[in-house]
Design a protein around this nucleic acid. Structure first.
Lengths: 242, 242
DNA sequence: CTGTATTACTGGTCAGACCAAAACAGAGGC
DNA sequence: GCCTCTGTTTTGGTCTGACCAGTAATACAG
């Protein structure tokens, strides 16, 4: 009997994360307008029927993601879209000491453009088929709202390019650079972005299509240009949420 | 009077963010090994002389960034090392296991060409001065027969280029890729090569000079071309051995 | 009307307590 | 002896209520 319950219990949702989602929802619906002040923590706690510590954890989580900004003694504000400027000093230092998304993307831009250049030179017909398959897989599946699945397939796509170099070192490095997108910080940023601009998914797919085409034409310039476009879109997700 | 204090008070550091930084530090120094369990929240709070809520906020912050992972009833685990650390560590092991210098050089060619492209875009005048200095240093010293010193300066040169990107990840990766030249296999190859073809040193210096010039002209194409020439020379070293 | 001092409000921190889930250890059955 | 079951301990998750420190609005004096 116990083992059945265990199966359903796969995902544990902390109360604070539920509260965070609710707050996000209220921001999306415009009930908490951008730039305005959030109700005091005590009031939110009362309204949602939870304790203040839970609300605090939710708020600090959203603060790290860049949605909220707190000013001690004043209140908590809904951040303006440009997150990079809005990240509070304390959050900034945590990100700097770990891995800032911007730095990782910049590294990807530099490294992957070199990789794609090499890949185009060395790719066999089979490699190109795999790359095309990785792209098609993404294209076919119904991905409505499933941003995680969408991102995973994006990862596979970029990885298949790296594999065309037939160089273990390059593949290993790219794997590490790509793996970061699973982290909660990135996932939250993605969700927020896509929910606000659902129409932005198609252009990204077009960009990947462009890369596939560039491989088939063996046109490195074109591929690199498309790649940079691709990564710039991700950057936009992170820093320019409108 | 108050307005003066207000200026200095621009940065506000919450206690939880300080704790987060401390925990990050302990992870970096290896005091909290990767994959292991963090001490219980209560213990950390006691050790650091703060309350448990503060520790909890710090932990949940690091959880969002992806450094920690908590399992209710069990403990908090260091999920993965930071991307930059993990990358350089993994690249290191691959380099150690790899018996194919060709693979390493191929990776360098792919990666470094992207890096140099970015570096030329972002380099300040100071950066270019450092690059030139790294090159000159090599040129001036009497290097007759001292191939190790010669190689070290070559490493410094390439590293100074990576540093112009101001990206820790890129620098970390390049450091690892460059460090391989210290290994006995490579050193032996170098010595035998130079002893057999002493006249080959000058052309390599010319190549580096070309890269410096390309930086000063902000000409990425030229720099990448010179870089490939540089690495091809090393390749030649390796294959003209038999 | 203006400038200042007070006051109410808000986020930040703390202490202590309870709950539920996971891990652990020891008693029991095979 | 090995496995299983159970009770205890440990651990994270949550709650209450309180105090502090900074902010901002307000009341008051000039």
């Amino acid at each position: 009997m116990t083992q059945f319950e265990k199966i359903t219990q796969v995902k544990f949702k902390s109360k604070s994360s539920i509260i965070a989602e609710q707050i996000l929802q209220l921001i999306r619906t415009g009930q908490y307008p951008v730039g305005s002040k959030l109700p005091p923590e005590r009031i939110i706690a009362e309204q949602m029927g939870v304790s203040r510590p839970s609300v605090r954890e939710a708020i600090s989580a959203l603060q790290i993601v860049g949605v909220l900004e707190t000013r001690p003694g004043d209140g908590t504000y809904i951040s303006k879209p440009l997150i990079s400027d809005r990240l509070s000093a304390e959050v900034q230092t945590i990100l700097e000491q770990s891995d800032s998304p911007y730095e990782i993307l910049q590294a990807r831009k530099a490294i992957e453009s070199g990789v794609i250049h090499q890949a185009i030179k060395l790719a066999t017909e089979d490699d190109i088929r795999s790359i095309r398959a990785a792209w098609k897989q993404k294209h076919e599946k119904g991905l409505q709202g499933d941003y995680d699945a969408y991102t995973k397939q994006g990862k596979d796509f970029h990885l298949s390019i790296a594999q065309a170099t037939r160089n273990n070192l390059i593949v290993a490095i790219m794997e590490r650079l790509l793996s970061v997108t699973n982290q909660p910080l990135w996932r939250n940023m993605r969700c927020r972005y896509y929910e606000q601009n659902p129409k932005r998914i198609e252009p990204m797919m077009d960009v990947h299509k462009k890369i596939v085409a560039a491989f088939e034409e063996r046109n490195a310039e074109k591929a690199i240009q498309a790649l940079e476009e691709d990564l710039d879109t991700v950057l936009e997700q992170l820093y320019n949420m409108a």
